[in-house]
Nucleic acid binder design. Structure first.
Length: 222
DNA sequence: GACCAGGCACATC
DNA sequence: GATGTGCATGGT
């Protein structure tokens, strides 16, 4: 498929999702810091467990850079316990917070106010921040255009035969960057729609029969 | 009681 | 470079 056809297919898929699920404009968080925290806590973890941990943080008045910086790692681990992997995640949160405090004097806006490539490499330099976590923070907290690839993205596009099933992170991300306009709101909502399909379809069976994408992608299977 | 969930770092070959 | 493993809770 050439570039134009692929772009139209991807936009058509997005339209189908939009029609089914409505605008998402989404990351369920109230502040940029909460996005960052949620991005770490949701690593290989259901969002429901993350909401329990975030609620605990709010009760403890710990959803704050200074508070997180001061807090003992073990104390933090206890608070985020429902999110699972709480010891590693407490360490990862401390690493991220320490970086922002040390390099940007705790100023999140200044941290985010730089070119995407710089922001990304700085995020990736922090222990515990990998590609998906970094890109989620860039898109949903810093609100810059980068396409987030997650398990849902791989599954949905892999099973519909749009990308090879065993594609790695970079090649899938590059696929979307190559064919879609570099638009923060589009990337934001597109990924949100994919999460919605992931939750509602393409779960147990390879292709759910009323998946809104099956019509769009028919003919691209296998 | 299995199985899964919006990963990542690290060890080993 | 590829593959394997530890991390852990709560919902189905």
């Amino acid at each position: 498929m050439d570039h134009k056809a692929t772009r139209e297919l991807l936009l058509e898929a997005y339209q189908a999702l939009l029609t089914r699920f409505g605008h998402r404009q989404w990351w369920p968080a109230e502040t940029p810091l909460e996005v960052c925290v949620g991005a770490v806590l949701t690593q290989n973890t259901s969002w429901n467990n993350v909401t329990l941990a975030i609620a605990n943080l709010k009760v403890a008045r710990a959803l704050d850079l200074g508070a997180l910086y001061q807090m003992e790692q073990d104390t933090l681990a206890g608070i985020i316990r429902p999110s699972g992997y709480y010891n590693v995640k407490a360490k990862r949160l401390k690493s991220l917070v320490a970086y922002i405090v040390r390099v940007y004097n705790g100023n999140l806006e200044r941290f985010f106010d730089q070119a995407v490539t710089h922001l990304r490499s700085e995020l990736l330099s922090v222990n515990g921040i990998g590609k998906e976590t970094a890109d989620s923070i860039i898109l949903y907290a810093a609100q810059k255009p980068i396409f987030v690839v997650d398990a849902y993205t791989k599954r949905v596009f892999g099973r519909h035969g749009i990308v090879p099933l065993e594609s790695d992170y970079d090649s899938i991300q590059e696929f979307f960057h190559r064919h879609l306009p570099k638009d923060t709101l589009l990337f934001n909502d597109y990924h949100a729609q994919l999460v919605a399909v992931g939750h509602n379809h393409c779960k147990k069976r390879p292709i759910c029969k009323d998946c809104p994408l099956s019509t769009v992608f028919s003919g691209h299977m296998g």
